[in-house]
């Protein structure tokens, strides 16, 4: 067993099934975010007494979050690269950087939200803000879930090393991480960039 490569771990039948299942889960998530985007676009103009997107968003700070999350996707890819080479410590290190960046992103998002709330833009202020917080909150929750999930996997990696059990899990977690990154890019475009125009 020790001599098996990571690729062989990933080709194992159970691993293949896990990965396939994960792709269908991504399919479900696409529907979830698709609906949330739909809701957001439908009520974007219903700002009522609250601020409009243009008044609310501060692009500079959001650029920072974007850079943080995109970098984390990059470090995640490096981690998988080392996973494929069966280098335990380097894999561990780069996944660790990934979750730290993820945590930084969540921190920035919380800061952004508290700022908005202080300006009087609460979740109940207008339909637009409701949809905004719902969409961003769901995404943020996914990031948080990813951070916790990968942390648990890292403990296992630390204890057990790269084997038939841990390798597919880490691989799937990396796919998940890239997915929430892609969602963020769409959020950035549809919510922030178009909101600023």
């Amino acid at each position: 067993m020790e001599t098996m490569s990571t690729q062989m771990h990933l080709n194992h039948k159970q691993a293949q099934m896990n990965i396939l299942a994960f792709w269908f889960l991504i399919g479900a998530e696409v529907v979830v975010f698709g609906c949330l985007f739909g809701i957001y676009l439908a009520v974007k103009s219903l700002t009522g007494q609250g601020p409009t997107p243009n008044e609310l968003f501060k692009l500079n700070e959001i650029m920072l979050s974007t850079v943080v999350l995109l970098t984390s996707s990059f470090t995640c890819a490096i981690a998988v690269y080392f996973l494929n080479l069966s280098k335990k410590l380097l894999t561990l290190l780069f996944f660790l950087i990934t979750i730290l960046l993820g945590l930084a992103f969540i921190g920035l998002e919380i800061r952004e939200f508290t700022l908005y709330v202080e300006e009087g833009a609460k979740i109940s202020t207008s339909a637009f803000l409701g949809a905004f917080y719902l969409l961003l909150g769901t995404h943020g929750f996914h990031v948080l879930f990813g951070v916790i999930w990968i942390s648990l996997l890292l403990v296992q990696l630390w204890l057990k090393g790269i084997n038939q059990e841990t390798a597919p899990k880490l691989f799937i977690a990396s796919l998940y991480w890239h997915f929430i990154d892609v969602i963020w890019v769409i959020i950035f475009t549809i919510v922030y960039l178009i909101g600023k125009v």
Binding site: I39, V43, L46, G48, S124, A127, G130, A131, L134
Partner: peptide, 13 residues
């Protein structure tokens, strides 16, 4: 639970 108004008659749809 959290008072969003997305489905409300007066402010949402």
């Amino acid at each position: 639970l959290f008072g969003t108004v997305i489905l409300s008659a007066s402010e949402g749809n």
